[in-house]
Design a protein around this nucleic acid. Structure first.
Length: 253
DNA sequence: GGCCAGGCCCCAG
DNA sequence: CTGGGGCATGGC
């Protein structure tokens, strides 16, 4: 009984596009290895794998954050009650950048499919049907036409620009929130929303508060006149709860 | 079959 | 600085 984590909410709330679950078995390639577990084998796996413990962000102050956010207002309290244990992963910045370039004007199901397609075509084979998401070096010779033929559509040139400028990600940890926010948007196809997703999901910036179409609706109906500062210092976590709750339960009255 | 999806670019006012 | 059309494609 390590700290409680809600695996379904964490892995299928649209912060990562790498995971699948079949017959109770969670699977994805993390780093260069296939990670595979069930509810029962999750804790033992973490006990022997420190990198995964960090990936699942097991040592952050979720108890305090859940408690504080629940005290803010009834709507947020309901969202947290519904998905208590929703964690924000510590993902690879490159994979988050590419994943959220794919996300624009798109739906989560198809994003996952496109992400998997890029992995199968350009990534390193791991085992069985599993491939790692391609590193930038593996994509250096890809053309816009290649990407369009794989169904990437108008995002193809954005992916190419990210491939060319991936080194920019190295500097982000040393930058403050505002500087990092601006630096990320020098990549073509990275606007305010995608930049904030990268800051939240790859760099664990707790004040990153991405507003997609779902969150815009939540803010308009539930939090008129408010912004991220209302949720300080846990805006990113609040956003993920509200987003997931809205999408799955329509912000149930 | 039309509307929408974890938006952004670009151009007009 | 703000508003709105266009963009590829498929889920539902």
């Amino acid at each position: 009984m390590s700290a409680s984590i809600d695996l379904d909410a964490t892995l299928f709330s649209g912060q990562t596009f790498a995971w699948s679950k079949q017959d109770g078995v969670y699977q994805a390639v993390v780093g260069r290895q296939l990670v595979c577990f069930t509810e029962k084998t999750f804790d033992p796996l973490l006990a022997q794998n420190g990198a995964l413990r960090r990936y699942f962000d097991m040592d952050w102050e979720y108890g305090r954050a859940e408690s504080y956010l629940s005290s803010l207002d009834p709507h947020l309290a309901r969202a947290i009650q519904a998905y208590k244990g929703l964690h924000i992963l510590n993902q690879d910045p490159w994979e988050v950048l590419m994943g959220f370039l794919l996300s624009q004007n798109n739906n989560i199901k198809r994003i996952r499919g496109m992400y998997e397609l890029l992995s199968k075509h350009f990534g390193t084979h791991v085992e069985g049907p599993w491939y790692a998401f391609p590193r930038p070096e593996q994509l250096m010779n890809v053309s816009e036409q290649d990407l369009r033929q794989l169904g990437m559509g108008f995002r193809a040139p954005y992916l190419l620009d990210a491939i060319q400028n991936h080194a920019l990600l190295q500097a982000i940890p040393d930058l403050g929130d505002e500087e990092a926010y601006r630096a990320l948007q020098t990549i073509r196809g990275v606007g305010p929303k995608v930049a904030l997703c990268i800051l939240a999901f790859a760099f664990h910036r707790q004040q990153a508060f991405p507003l997609d179409t779902w969150m815009l609706k939540v803010m308009k109906t539930r939090y008129p006149g408010r912004d991220a500062s209302y949720f300080t210092p846990y805006a990113a976590l609040a956003q993920q709860y509200l987003f997931h709750f809205e999408r799955t339960q329509g912000g149930r009255l």
